[in-house]
Design a protein around this nucleic acid. Structure first.
Lengths: 265, 265
DNA sequence: AGCGCCATGTGGTCTGACCACATGGGCTAC
DNA sequence: GTAGCCCATGTGGTCAGACCACATGGCGCT
């Protein structure tokens, strides 16, 4: 077994044993190296992997913000992995589209059924909202994290409405629109309250952004398409809030596949 | 931007540009370092991340097998990331169970509808079968890769049947049974022919194995539970092959949630 | 012609060092 | 006594160089 794998296993063990809570700091690389009897580069490689997977965040300097702190960003690792596999050509775009149809139709259905059950403001089981990637940067410039952790469904809905409002702004560039659009769809999935599904959807985000950017260049008219997308977004959210699960599912499906077909992908 | 991130971005760019096909070898670490004007440790950190995400495989020695070769193992990165997040306590087990219910019910439904459409032997869109993890080893000892790439649906069905037959072997330990069980469920999802969904399910495998192992210790009688699981597996596969989508979905849901409830999780 | 040995190139690891950065306490000036 | 500045300290980031284990493949010997 390679040294950095032993380090990784040791950290994973301590993580599972609760040695470090969320937000806590790992020992310094030098201290960990001495503690485990390995060299600093080996520790560094393990920390790099944890960072790529969204388990820790590293920062230089001094004080409580410096060092490797345990964070909660499941989407980072998933997103980078999916994007890299799409980049290497092993994952076809059709599979990505099929997956988002699956996740999003399910999510809006769940959300709508929860609405009709009369618990519109119930807290989500887990709010692991984190969207930006940690690894590399050749993806579309993901701006910044937005979703606060452990948000309620009501807050998620408000966030979704806010995103739609911002997409109505005149003079919005296609890139800005598509960025807001991607975040809206992640919020949509987040409404279902399953942190893992949300993380997967957030992970798909950069891969989705790539094919959307490519596909939008093949459109006859971006402005008219954007107008249609805006209306469809409103329609989806309306169906969810009205508790019409079947209608919400069908609208999401038509929305996603409609763009996919129109862009000729 | 940190040096290893620049290296990662450069490799991702070349990967997307088709510089290396699947199975090709990356330049040696020393050559890459010189090419990019960075030191070897920086290259190593980038390669480590690629390895953790299942993009490349590294091997020492000489000859065509040595070095960093481009592979196609989407499940490795996803699996390790999901397992680590579950270990750190940020992803509840209920979310993992909910996600597998979603993926598996959808997959068997798709498979059954494809059966009834009369294309039982149609080739899958992509066969990215890879199940074992690359990172760390504290998970349940995943034995080895089994699914060959680009397998047909018929081959997948045969593999599923074979797994069920092997689960009938007398004297099978609980661990062996659960390993076969996990592989059966991955095969089930693979029937739908979506490589990404299959990769996600394969990624969930080690996280699932953990809660199954914990839950099975709380069962009143493992042998009787195993007997029930065997029968349910056959029932699911029968429904798929008969093209009864609704029945297959319901049986999968009952199968997963039944164990979850019985184990008191 | 067959066999065995070693030069070669690979990743794996370690040592030691220096740098940039952010903090926080001590020192100085007022 | 207080407010401000400044540098010691500890952090990750990076580099250079070295050695090791390993697997291969060609060379030389038999």
């Amino acid at each position: 077994m390679r040294t950095h794998e032993r380090v990784l296993a040791a950290i994973e063990h301590d993580l599972a044993a609760g040695r470090w809570a969320l937000g806590a700091r790992l020992p310094s690389e030098r201290a960990l190296a001495e503690e485990l009897g390995v060299s600093r580069p080996s520790v560094r490689e393990a920390v790099r992997i944890l960072e790529a997977m969204g388990i820790v965040r590293t920062a230089v300097g001094s004080g409580p913000e410096a060092g490797a702190t345990v964070i909660d960003r499941p989407a980072a690792g998933l997103g980078a992995a999916v994007r890299l596999h799409v980049a290497s050509g092993t994952l076809p775009v059709a599979d990505v589209v099929g997956t988002r149809v699956l996740l999003e139709t399910w999510a809006v259905g769940e959300a709508a059924r929860r609405e009709v059950a009369g618990v519109p403001g119930a807290p989500a089981t887990s709010g692991t909202g984190a969207t930006s990637d940690t690894v590399a940067t050749s993806s579309t410039g993901a701006t910044a994290d937005t979703s606060p952790p452990s948000a309620t469904v009501a807050a998620r809905l408000a966030e979704a409405h806010d995103l739609l409002d911002r997409m109505d702004a005149p003079g919005l560039s296609a890139e800005e629109f598509q960025d807001l659009d991607a975040r809206f769809h992640v919020e949509l999935v987040a409404l279902a309250g399953n942190g893992l599904v949300e993380a997967i959807m957030a992970g798909l985000r950069s891969a989705i952004a790539q094919y959307v950017a490519v596909g939008s260049r093949a459109l006859p008219s971006w402005t008219s398409t954007a107008e249609r997308l805006r209306a469809e977004h409103r329609g989806i959210l309306d169906a969810v809030e009205a508790g019409r699960a079947e209608q919400a599912c069908e609208r999401v499906r038509a929305h996603i596949l409609g763009f996919y077909d129109e862009a000729g992908l």
